Simulated assay, not measured.
Amino acid sequence: MVGTTRTFELFRFADTVQSVTAEVRCGEPPTMGDERYYAAEIVLKSDFVTGRVDLWVSLEDLDEWERCLDTLQAEEGVEWPAGGRGAWLAVLPEDPVEVTVHDSPSTQIAVRVPIDVASDWLEENRLRLDHVRKAVAPAS
Results as ranks from 00 to 15, higher is better:
residue 65 W to Y: 15
residue 28 E to S: 10
residue 84 G to E: 10
residue 94 E to T: 09
residue 29 P to S: 03
residue 48 F to V: 09
residue 62 L to R: 04
residue 71 T to E: 13
residue 133 R to E: 14
residue 109 I to S: 07
residue 122 L to F: 01
residue 89 L to R: 00
residue 71 T to R: 13
residue 90 A to P: 00
residue 132 V to T: 09
residue 126 R to D: 01
residue 122 L to S: 09
residue 114 P to A: 09
residue 102 H to R: 07
residue 62 L to M: 06
residue 123 E to Q: 12
residue 64 E to Q: 12
residue 61 D to C: 08
residue 110 A to E: 13
residue 94 E to R: 10
residue 119 S to G: 09
residue 64 E to K: 01
residue 43 V to E: 08
residue 44 L to N: 00
residue 70 D to R: 13
residue 36 R to I: 03
residue 100 T to Y: 02
residue 100 T to Q: 02
residue 104 S to M: 12
residue 66 E to L: 10
residue 76 E to C: 07
residue 85 R to L: 09
residue 113 V to W: 05
residue 132 V to K: 09
residue 43 V to K: 14
residue 90 A to Y: 04
residue 100 T to H: 07
residue 74 A to Q: 08
residue 61 D to L: 10
residue 99 V to F: 11
residue 25 R to C: 13
residue 127 L to R: 15
residue 42 I to E: 01
residue 49 V to I: 07
residue 54 D to C: 05
residue 35 E to T: 14
residue 119 S to D: 14
residue 122 L to K: 10
residue 123 E to M: 11
residue 61 D to F: 06
residue 125 N to F: 04
residue 65 W to D: 07
residue 25 R to T: 04
residue 26 C to V: 15
residue 34 D to S: 12
residue 103 D to S: 01
residue 95 D to E: 06
residue 43 V to P: 08
residue 98 E to R: 05
residue 48 F to N: 01
residue 63 D to L: 07
residue 118 A to Y: 00
residue 90 A to L: 03
residue 123 E to R: 12
residue 127 L to M: 15
residue 117 V to N: 01
residue 57 V to D: 01
residue 61 D to V: 12
residue 39 A to L: 14
residue 96 P to T: 13
residue 47 D to Y: 00
residue 89 L to C: 06
residue 92 L to Y: 15
residue 93 P to G: 13
residue 41 E to V: 13
residue 110 A to P: 01
residue 88 W to A: 11
residue 39 A to N: 09
residue 90 A to G: 11
residue 130 D to V: 14
residue 89 L to Q: 10
residue 110 A to D: 11
residue 34 D to R: 09
residue 72 L to C: 04
residue 115 I to H: 05
residue 39 A to H: 05
residue 74 A to I: 11
residue 93 P to H: 11
residue 67 R to F: 06
residue 71 T to Q: 15
residue 53 V to F: 08
residue 133 R to G: 05
residue 66 E to M: 01
residue 46 S to A: 00
residue 99 V to N: 13
residue 38 Y to V: 08
residue 43 V to Y: 12
residue 99 V to Q: 08
